[in-house]
Amino acid sequence: MSNNEKCTCVECGNTDERMDKLKDILEEYRSIKGNLIPILHSVQKIYGYLPEDILQVVSEKINIPMTEIYGVASFYHLFSLEPKGEHIIKVCLGTACYVKGGQIILNRLEQELNLEVGKTSLDGKFTLEATRCLGACGLSPVMTVDDKIYAKVTLDDVRRILDEYTKVEVDK
């Protein structure tokens, strides 16, 4: 667990404001039919992903089996069962970006970060994702880091872009 990550463990008794928010959400959605997806969205907004112990609480409180919760959480791409990094890097692999080198950019990021697509770095700094379209085909290849868009990315740009996010931490 990283220094800024709080325990989500229900059994240890270390509750925080997130658990209070979760209880409020479960109460709000308790009697609403089809409540699972909105609850999962709320849990992910609170925790940044869907922690197993929190999903167990959801299961018990709204009386939906864990298998059903996992089925929904793993079916929809928006949900994550693993913690995300501080910075989310997305590389477009849509047709225009792929043709102009999107896969090569993604390969370089994997190499630079020593990280597979869909995984988070051990230090919790980066999560690397491939996406089908970022809606900027005329600027291909395109990648984003969090909400910042990088257009016409070259192999030489990759290290410079990563340094923007690692250098900031050193300067703090």
Rank of each mutant, 00 (worst) to 15 (best):
V142P: 13
T154C: 11
Y165G: 01
M19E: 15
D24C: 00
G102A: 05
K125A: 14
L93F: 04
E164H: 07
Y76Q: 12
M66D: 08
E116R: 09
F75M: 05
Q111A: 11
R159M: 07
I104G: 01
Q103R: 13
P141A: 06
Y29C: 03
T127W: 01
L155R: 00
E5C: 04
M1F: 12
N107L: 00
I39E: 05
T95Q: 05
V145T: 10
S59C: 06
K100D: 08
V58S: 12
I104Q: 10
S140V: 00
P65A: 07
Y70Q: 13
R18C: 13
Q103S: 15
I89S: 13
V57W: 09
E17I: 08
Y150H: 15
S42G: 13
A73L: 04
I161Y: 08
A96G: 06
L50W: 09
T15G: 09
G124M: 09
R160V: 13
D16V: 00
I89H: 15
K45L: 07
D53A: 00
D20R: 02
P38Q: 05
H87A: 08
I149Q: 05
R159S: 12
H87N: 14
K84D: 04
T120A: 02
V142D: 03
L115T: 03
L81E: 12
S80F: 11
D53Q: 10
G71A: 01
L93E: 12
V43N: 04
V10Y: 14
N114K: 14
F79C: 03
K172V: 05
D53N: 13
Q111W: 08
L81P: 14
G118E: 07
E11Q: 07
P83S: 07
I62R: 06
L40C: 05
C12V: 01
V153R: 08
G13H: 03
H41E: 15
L81T: 06
M19A: 13
L122C: 06
N3A: 09
G118R: 03
S59H: 06
T166K: 06
L128V: 06
K167C: 03
A151Y: 12
I69Y: 12
E5D: 15
N114P: 08
C12E: 01
I149F: 15
Y29E: 12
L113I: 05
K90F: 00
L113H: 02
K23N: 10
L139Q: 12
V99Q: 10
G102F: 07
D16L: 00
S140P: 10
P51V: 01
P51H: 04
P83Q: 01
L122I: 08
T154S: 15
